[in-house]
Design a protein around this nucleic acid. Structure first.
Length: 116
DNA sequence: AAGGTGACAGTTT
DNA sequence: TAAACTGCCACCT
């Protein structure tokens, strides 16, 4: 009886990575949306925490497409340079100004809506 | 084993 | 309207 246990990152983490990987090119989503889609609407902080380890993940999850509910790049500091996250987003056609995604509501991709 | 931390979010001043 | 406070849940020391 071998119960598979992940030393780090429960299913929750895996699911977070999964959802983030599904965010389409040029779109963004929020921590809260992901948490809600996974059934834990109040675990948004945990989602952010999961992203912390996302860099160690392969394939690398597009963590730059995840922002907070205001469209603010709160996690930009976790990318090499301070404006690395912004540049990645801009490379996808997303306008970032003052650490905030412009037209955020239009670019917002809600997994609960587009995912089954 | 217990307490502290955080890439958030919602509510209250 | 903007700033501050509180709840939340998994991880780390």
């Amino acid at each position: 009886m071998t119960k598979i246990t992940f030393k780090k990152g429960n299913d929750f983490y895996e699911q977070v990575y999964q959802v983030v990987s599904l965010v389409p090119f040029g779109r963004v989503t929020t921590y809260g949306a992901i948490a809600r889609y996974l059934g834990s609407a109040q675990s948004s902080r945990v989602v952010g925490y999961a992203m912390n380890n996302s860099h160690a993940r392969v394939p690398k999850v597009p963590a730059h497409r995840v922002v907070n509910r205001n469209g603010m790049l709160t996690g930009k500091h976790f990318f090499g340079s301070d404006n690395a996250m912004q540049r990645m987003l801009e490379a996808e056609g997303i306008i970032v100004e003052n650490d905030t995604v412009m037209s955020f509501t239009a670019l917002f991709w809600d997994p609960a809506v587009y995912l089954l």
